[in-house]
């Protein structure tokens, strides 16, 4: 009896949380289609005009282009830098390995606001603050370690015997890499890529601190327009939020084909 009550309360909590999430999301969606909405369960009249308004007034075409550019470059660089590091950290043991792992772990657990301000200070001093390059350089700080930590277990799964038998069969190191490791690592690369992608798109703090006029990502633009509340109709901001949401949700659905939901946050094993 007691265990049944216990289970029931668990499910009630989950249902509550889900309802709350659905409410939060759908409130934004409904509002973006509202002509006007002051109180009342639903708006009295609907329109799609706010999307056109948002597109034009918020330069969404440009913002999306910038976001896409940043995301693609970050994903590519994070994988390119993280892949060899993950290989070594998964395969080799050496003296300072645990120190290096701890160092790579820090950007993931220290809040971005904490290291973002000194990072922004430094990058502005070198003249790359407020530019697309600055945003990319800053966002990569947590993304390179993320790629490393996602890729490492995939390397660990590939038996070192496969590499050894490859070299016994006469393959050079480059051939082993290209013909054995790389094909086997494709799931890992996809997983890491997707996780870096989702985290880059939704990254706020670093993109905010480093982004200037011509280098705002979608989230940052969203924040500025909300912050300038009162000037813009709330429906148009919600329309922009919906565009952002559709993008993230699409990516999330694609992501979930490769990764388990639990992989979206890192594991507690140290």
């Amino acid at each position: 009896m007691r265990t049944r009550m216990w289970k029931l309360s668990l499910y009630l909590f989950i249902v509550g949380f889900i309802l709350n999430m659905l409410g939060i999301v759908s409130h934004v969606v409904v509002s973006s289609f509202a002509k006007r909405w002051f109180g009342g369960l639903l708006p009295p009249a609907y329109t799609t005009d706010w999307f056109a308004y948002a597109w034009k007034n918020f330069d969404l075409g440009q913002v999306l282009g910038i976001t896409l550019l940043i995301v693609v470059v970050v994903v590519f660089l994070a994988l390119a830098i993280g892949f060899p590091a993950a290989y070594i950290l998964a395969r080799r043991s050496f003296r300072f390995k645990s120190a290096i792992l701890l160092l790579y772990f820090l950007p993931l657990v220290i809040p971005q606001m904490t290291y973002g301000i000194p990072l922004a200070t430094t990058l502005y001093r070198y003249g790359v603050g407020g530019s697309i390059v600055g945003v990319i350089l800053a966002v990569l700080v947590p993304m390179v370690p993320l790629a490393v930590f996602v890729l490492m277990p995939f390397f660990e799964q590939i038996s070192v015997n496969l590499e050894w038998s490859g070299s016994m069969l006469g393959a050079s190191r480059a051939q082993i890499f290209r013909r054995i490791l790389f094909p086997l690592m494709i799931p890992g690369i996809l997983t890491a890529g997707v996780l870096v992608l989702v985290n880059t798109i939704s990254n706020f703090e670093l993109a905010f601190l480093l982004g200037g006029g011509g280098s705002q990502t979608l989230v940052v633009a969203l924040f500025y327009n909300m912050f300038a509340g009162g000037v813009r109709p709330v429906y148009s901001i919600d329309a922009m939020a919906v565009i952002y949401m559709v993008m993230v949700m699409t990516l999330l659905l694609i992501a979930l084909r490769f990764v388990r939901p639990t992989q979206m946050v890192f594991k507690l094993d140290k």
Binding site: I14, F17, I18, M21, G23, I24, V25, H27, V28, V198, I201, S202, N203, F204, V219, L222, F223, M226, I237, D238, A241, Y244, M245, V248, M249, L252, A255, L256, P261, M264, V265
Partner: peptide
């Protein structure tokens, strides 16, 4: 999946909602 939605949507959208 629904539980992780707030993480992937990001804090800005969450706050707006």
């Amino acid at each position: 999946t629904i539980l992780i939605m707030p993480i992937s949507l990001g804090v800005i959208l969450l706050s707006e909602g």
